[in-house]
Design a protein around this nucleic acid. Structure first.
Lengths: 132, 132
DNA sequence: GTAAAATTGATAATCTTTCTCATTTCAGTA
DNA sequence: TACTGAAATGAGAAAGATTATCAATTTTAC
């Protein structure tokens, strides 16, 4: 895999913006540096980087796939109000997945956990009728 | 919400087929009973039933959204080989989500866990080069 | 610097899902 | 049982997300 300037830019965007961006969001940011970059290039690179394990595809929310610069096991909390995706640490899950593997005869290679709810910010705004 | 024959059929398909079908799969099965049913009707009903909490939308795998007739909290194991989605029971998760909620100030309303890996069936076939 | 391999931008194509709207069905009531 | 307004349907167009194609450009290794 060659590292073109565009690929580097795309990777940096995902790694340095822990917002779990969609391809479209990455595209918007990438265009600031490469105004002629095409959306196809963004999709191609995000998928290739994910295939190589350099970043991760996540499907925490409906609609578009999102990408995560963190590849170590962790969870996500998705706010059903503002649609933001937050990271959650919880080492305990590791032993739970092991348990599941042996209990169901399933060879666990990865897991993806999305906790849905309302983030504290939205929860506070809720009363005033605001929407993020 | 009126219960048309088509809506009943769609609901039955999802509830009685624990394969976590996509809209397209539901459509294919529904056509056996209602050859003229339209894909739009299938999508409309699946979404409405999900909005009413009668069934659940899941995004365990990429590509298409899937639907689940079980609405009680449970996990999914997704085989990366045959793409099948299996149910997993694990009550322990309930206290973990509570913990996460209080730790991060997040009001947890639901969660969705997908464990990815290879199911025992595919694991056995693997050596012989077969693909499901 | 050169050549082969990989990548890009532009655009078409595909796939999934939603929307529109005239027609039909449903549920409640007389 | 017939009537009526609301809800749902089927057909197809439209929108949104993603992938594929391909000539031109960039990258990498020598």
């Amino acid at each position: 895999m060659n590292y073109s300037q565009q690929r580097n830019c795309i990777l940096n965007i995902v790694v340095s913006n822990p917002i779990h961006p969609t391809a479209e969001q990455v595209y918007d940011i990438a265009r600031r540096s490469y105004p002629k970059i095409s959306l196809g290039t963004v999709y191609r690179n995000l998928n290739q980087l994910a295939e190589h394990g350099i970043l991760k595809k996540i499907c925490s929310s409906y609609g578009s796939v999102r990408f995560d610069g963190r590849t170590d096991p962790h969870f996500h909390m998705v706010c059903t109000h503002c649609e933001k995706v937050f990271d959650v640490e919880l080492g305990e899950m590791l032993c739970i997945t092991d348990k599941i593997g042996s209990q169901y005869g399933f060879r666990v290679t990865d897991y993806e956990i999305s906790i849905k709810g309302v983030c504290s910010e939205c929860d506070q705004k809720q009363g005033s009728g605001e929407t993020a």
